[in-house]
């Protein structure tokens, strides 16, 4: 599966939003909910395709728009899942909505995780906090494809109650996905490891030269993961990061998401580490 902004998208008005209804809202972690959205227009619903790692612009009239990863299975045809942390204007307003309420959707935008090219490889998915939202689609895709040799999820959170999608780990494990979690600060409920997600990396790199790393989280965390993985023998070209930047248009017109010569909305959010390592090293690029 490869997705590019061409063909049908090329002549599309990028500001056209499609109306959707909230089907279900699932509370995840404190302040974080997953919204299952259904596009109202059946033609649009049928036409809509996304790849794991891409995002939508969710819009509430009069309030504003926010970039949110699509976190459902890319093979799913009915609803689109978005896992959202309420942190500000749009996301707080979303948190006040309920099932049946209306949300506008533009998308999908951006580059996908390179999950279609994982034949015979070990895939290690490293997620810091909410980063896992964009990778859930990749996990579900890889579970269904069964083309790679192994899938390992390393998920770190500040506290145990920040670990995302806990209720799904059993299903992931049943499908052969190894899931390891770690927290910065333990509480009474926690018996697992305490530390940084990079601490989990060593044990998961059985065959570094055949391993691909898919990492999403805060910039410093991703740089730490990339360096640690490369230090343990993973090829630089096999490390992929998903970046987050400010964005208004999502189609490389508004310029807000620029990172060096890259438009994060179009050239990213998923980018090969090889391409951005030097830019990430320099503060405030």
């Amino acid at each position: 599966m490869s997705v590019s902004v061409s063909g049908a998208a090329a002549e599309k008005n990028p500001w056209r939003s499609h109306t959707a209804r909230i089907c279900t809202i699932t509370p995840e972690t404190p302040g974080v909910r997953t919204y299952e959205l259904e596009l109202e227009d059946p033609v649009e619903r049928d036409h809509y395709r996304f790849a794991a790692g891409q995002f939508n612009m969710l819009y509430l009239p009069g309030i504003g728009e926010a970039a949110i990863s699509v976190s459902s299975d890319p093979a799913g045809r009915d609803t689109l899942a978005h896992t959202v942390r309420a942190v500000g204007n749009v996301t707080d307003a979303l948190a006040r909505l309920g099932p049946g309420d209306q949300v506008f959707v533009r998308g999908p935008f951006g580059t996908p995780w390179p999950v279609a090219e994982m034949l015979g490889r070990d895939v290690v998915i490293v997620a810091g906090g909410l980063g896992l939202a964009s990778q859930r689609a990749a996990i579900l895709f890889l579970m269904a494809e069964r083309a790679c040799r192994s899938v390992t999820v390393l998920h770190g959170a500040k506290r145990p109650d920040g670990l995302l999608y806990g209720r799904e780990y059993d299903a992931w494990r049943a499908a052969g996905v190894a899931v390891h979690t770690i927290v910065n600060e333990a509480d009474a409920s926690w018996s697992g490891p305490v530390g940084l997600v990079t601490d989990l990396l060593t044990d998961s790199l059985r065959d570094p030269s055949a391993t691909t790393i898919l990492c999403c989280g805060p910039d410093p965390m991703m740089m730490g993961v990339a360096k640690a993985a490369i230090g343990r023998g993973v090829a630089t070209r096999d490390v992929f990061l998903s970046l987050e930047r400010n964005m208004a248009c999502a189609v490389a017109h508004c310029g807000l998401c620029q990172f060096g010569p890259l438009f994060v909305c179009r050239d990213g959010p998923v980018l090969p580490y090889e391409r951005i390592a030097e830019l990430l090293r320099i503060p405030q690029v």
């Binding site: 009239p61 009069g62 309030i63 504003g64 208004a248 017109h253 508004c254 310029g255 807000l256």
Partner: peptide, 21 residues
């Protein structure tokens, strides 16, 4: 220079919203 941001501009009723670049 082409950078822009988008603001929500509502009329008094709140029933009409322009997205202003």
């Amino acid at each position: 220079c082409f950078c822009s941001s988008v603001q929500e501009v509502a009329d008094l009723s709140g029933d009409h919203v322009d997205r202003e670049r």
